[in-house]
């Protein structure tokens, strides 16, 4: 193999090893599916490969994160995952607000009912602690849209657990519907 190609592959491989865990974690936070998370991470790294000479000196981790997010959102579109407004709120895994959602599975179930963009905003904003402007850049939307997605996502989480004594919530929430 040529020296340049070795250097290319070696530096790329180092980058993959260095960023793999964080990338899979991000992918898992978006997909909520460990198998799909690895698949998404591999896909994102593979998309960077032909551009590696250009990216490797230009904060490739930032580009990688962007590719993960955009690939996640576009793959959701390809799978014909759509959003549908429903009258019924999601299941109520807990009673006292989302701060009481100490069950991983319960939180996962609630998150799965959010739209992909809402989930992405929630994860990037609160788990990765990114500023709103950076989340907007990653998602290719305005800061106002990020605020709206975050607000609705948090509202949906709160809706799952109305305060004690209140009746069932009736505000429409998002429900994912998978197509063939």
């Amino acid at each position: 193999m040529q020296q340049g190609a070795q250097s290319y592959e070696a530096s790329f491989s180092d980058f993959v090893r260095a960023r793999w865990s964080a990338t899979v974690r991000l992918a898992n936070g978006l997909t909520l599916d460990a198998g799909r998370a690895e698949d998404l991470a591999q896909d994102a790294f593979a998309k960077l490969w032909p551009h590696w000479p250009r990216l490797r000196d230009d904060n490739p981790a930032a580009y990688l994160r962007r590719v993960v997010v955009t690939t996640f959102l576009s793959s959701r579109r390809l799978r014909r995952v759509s959003e549908q407004l429903t009258d019924a709120p999601p299941e109520r895994p807990h009673r006292d607000g989302y701060d009481e959602l100490d069950s991983r599975d319960a939180l996962r179930q609630v998150l799965l009912r959010l739209s992909p963009r809402q989930r992405a905003v929630l994860y990037l904003r609160y788990a990765e602690d990114l500023p709103q402007a950076q989340v907007a850049e990653l998602l290719g939307c305005s800061v106002g849209s990020v605020k709206t997605h975050a607000s609705r996502a948090l509202a949906a989480l709160r809706l799952t657990v109305p305060p004690e004594g209140s009746g069932p919530a009736s505000t429409p929430t998002h429900k994912e519907v998978r197509g063939g």
Binding site: R17, R25, G29, A46, W49, D99, R104, Y123, Y126, L154
Partner: peptide
């Protein structure tokens, strides 16, 4: 919530060196 989301996202088992799988994808 952020801590819970991070905890939820961290539950991916370590599958070893990822480079071969990524280059295979390439």
């Amino acid at each position: 919530l952020g801590a819970q989301l991070r905890d939820l996202a961290s539950g991916v088992p370590d599958s070893g060196d990822p480079v071969a799988a990524v280059l295979g994808r390439v």
